[in-house]
């Protein structure tokens, strides 16, 4: 898959996961790699970029086992970005569907 495309889709996935509540890195990585065939590490550069773009923020929260964990939280901008990406994604999927269907006829 085109790397740029994959990145955009992964951003949408991360933002959507964070829409359900704050998560820490390992959680996000394992939920993503369960569904999509990517290596766990891929998520960290994406998270860093999302943070740089102001779509997520981070904070530390105590954990039961060991040192505090870094949690990721969706910002208002991130919320908007997710909706926008989701819209683009739906348009894309619909276009592809239309094309495939029309060729079948």
């Amino acid at each position: 898959m085109n790397i740029q495309f994959k990145k955009g889709v992964l951003e949408l996935c991360v933002l959507s996961l964070l829409g359900h509540g704050d998560r820490y890195g390992y959680e996000l990585a394992s939920s993503l790699s369960e569904t999509i065939d990517i290596s766990d590490g891929t998520i960290y550069p994406i998270l860093r970029r999302l943070k740089g773009d102001g779509f997520v923020t981070t904070y530390l929260r105590e954990s039961n086992e060991g040192p505090p964990r870094k949690y990721y939280k969706l910002t208002d901008n991130g919320d908007k970005e997710r909706d926008s990406l989701h819209g683009q994604w739906k348009t894309f999927v619909t276009s592809v569907e239309n094309l495939v269907e029309s060729e079948a006829v």
């Binding site: 890195g25 390992y26 990517i38 290596s39 766990d40 590490g41 040192p67």
Partner: peptide, 26 residues
Amino acid sequence: ADFEEHFKDGESLGKTAEQVAEELGD
């Protein structure tokens, strides 16, 4: 530090460090 944390979380779930490194990728 992010990756250190990832290793710790993976290991606290019972994975070996080798497994975690493998899953993280290149």
